[in-house]
Amino acid sequence: MHNAATIAHDHEQHHHHDGDSTDVFGFWLYILTDCILFGCLFATFIVLNDPSMHGPALKSYLDLHDILIETFLLLVSNLTFCLAILSIYKSKLFRAQLWLVLTFILGASFVYMEVTEFAHIAHEGFSWATSGQASSFFTLVGTHGLHVSFGLLWILVMIVQLPILKITHITKRRMTYLGLFWNFLDIVWIFVFTIVYLMGGI
């Protein structure tokens, strides 16, 4: 009897595990389609920002110091999220929440800096409607910013639901989704700051 119960339990866990793995693979495929979306936006940006193009150059409106700070905000938030995942796996719920709150603050500062920068350069005369270069810049960087904003909303939902649902395989799976999403955004940012800001700033 005891053995049967154990086997049933093992089977149950195994079943959960396989189902979860398929779900996470599905989410990973979503992330990859998002990569293709960003790839198209990067292609548009590079084509429209050929040095021979006319119109105001992005370079004169940018302050690379701000971009460096934004980069580190995102990079540190990436680390704090990983620390939250570690706390979840050590069943330390409160500590996980603290790391998530810190991740949220860092991500929110990033979005705040980006929006301020957008408003500033639009006010200076490099706005969405100025040229094809400007449109592709705002679309590419704005799409990334929008993704980060959705990620922030998701982190808030996670902070609220963790104490309600406790640490189960469901919350672990949801943290895995969120982790993939958040790390993916930092990876996209590597290419945004290299191609948009650094190449534009040379």
Binding site: D10, H17, V24, H169, K172, L180
Partner: peptide, 12 residues
């Protein structure tokens, strides 16, 4: 380890 599923994302 079934108690620590990694979903193909490696050990933490």
């Amino acid at each position: 380890d079934l108690s620590q599923p990694d979903y193909g994302t490696g050990q933490k």
